Simulated scan of single mutants.
Amino acid sequence: MKKIVTTLMLATLLVACGQEKQPINTKIMNIQYPEINANNFEQKLAASVKHYEKEPMYYMRINKSNCVVEVLVNDYRMHRDYELSNYATPLEINDAILKSGEQTVTYRLYPVGDLIKEEYGEGGTVTKLTDNTAISISIIKMDNGSEKTLEDEEVIMKHVSLTDAKGRFIASGKPYYEFTFSFNAQVPYVNEGWSKGQDLSKLDQKLLEAKAVEFYKEYGKIFENKDADLLAKLNFGEEKRNSIALYKKISNIDTLWKEYLGGFDKNSMKIQPIENYRMVFFGNDKIVFLQLNSLEYPYRGSGALRIDYVNKRNNEAVFMPGIYLYLPEGEKLEDGLYTIN
C-alpha cells in the first residue's frame, strides 16, 4: 500500500506543477487514416464490413502436453499459451487470413520451465522438451451467418506432432521446436493487411529499431493525454481488417471501441522506459514488434511498451498494448513507421 500512496502523491505533485503530460510528437507516428476520429471510428468500421450469404469462419483447436506454445497463422502471431492447461474453446483465426488460398500454421514449442513446480509444489525446472511432449492442432470451419453451433463444426484437417519409431516426441531433449503445415481456406473478402509492406529485415536495423522505439514511446503518451482521436486513427487499419474478416456487427464494434477507451480509465498511470526488449519480425519479415526479454508472467511474449497503473481495487497492475508496425511500399524508413493494416 505504501508504494501506491507514493505513486498517487507523485501524480498529485506533477499535476500541481503542470508536468503530468508530455505532448505527443505525431510526426513520429505516421497516420494512414487522418479522417478517422473518436466520433466516427465505429461508424466507419461498420461501413467497411460486408455480409454474405455464407460467411466462413476458421478456428484452431489446440491441445498440448508437456510444453508451452506460440502459434502463428501466415506468420502472424495468433496464440500464446504459457500455462500447463489447455483452452476449452477453439480460437478464431480469420483476421490472419487475408484472402482465399493456401494458409500456413507455425507452432513453436518450449519447455514448461517452473510451471510444474509452481502448480504442484514438486519437481525441478524443466529446460528441455520431453519424450511425452505433444501437440495437436485441428483446423475447423463454420458458417458465421448460420444458426450452427460449435457442435456443427467441420474439421478441415488435424495435425499431430511427430514421434520417432519408439513413440517419443521427435524433438525430445531440445530446448525449442518449430514446425509449419498448411491448409486451404476460402473466404469471400480480400484484405491488404501487411501484404504490401517492405521486407524490414533488409533495411538498416539500427535505424529500424530507433524508429520503432520512437513510435512506442509516443504511443504511450496517448494514454497520458487521453487522446481518443489519435488512438482511433492509429488503430483503425488493423480493426478494419479484423472487422471485415470476422464479419463484425455494430454491437461487436461498439464493444471493441469501449475496450479501447477503457485504456484511459486507469489511475496513476506511469509509462515505463522502453528497455530490455528485442526486435521480432512477423508477417514474413514485413512486421516488426518490440518484445520484452522476459519469461515471467504476465510479461512473456508481450510488447515493450509497459504502462503501470493502480486498478479499481487499488492494486498495482500493468497494461501492455501490443504495437505491430510496418512500412508500406514506397515509404522511407527515415520518415517513420506505421501501425499495421
Rank of each mutant, 00 (worst) to 15 (best):
E102L: 11
S100A: 06
L14W: 04
E35D: 07
E92P: 12
L98N: 12
Y76E: 03
N66I: 05
N25R: 02
V15C: 06
I62V: 15
V73C: 02
R61C: 04
M29F: 06
K21V: 15
I31R: 10
N30E: 00
Y52F: 15
E70G: 01
E83H: 10
N25D: 15
F41R: 03
K54D: 08
N25C: 07
Q19E: 15
A47E: 14
K27V: 12
G101R: 02
N39S: 12
L98C: 08
N40T: 08
V49D: 04
Q19D: 13
C17E: 09
I62H: 01
Y87E: 15
N74T: 03
Y52Q: 02
Q43Y: 03
E53L: 02
K27P: 06
G18K: 05
M60P: 01
I36N: 09
E83D: 13
K99A: 12
N63L: 10
M60H: 09
Q103V: 12
L91W: 07
D75P: 07
A46E: 11
N63C: 01
H79M: 14
N40Y: 08
K50Y: 00
M29D: 08
D95S: 11
L14N: 03
K27R: 15
A16R: 02
H51M: 04
N74A: 02
Q43L: 02
M78I: 14
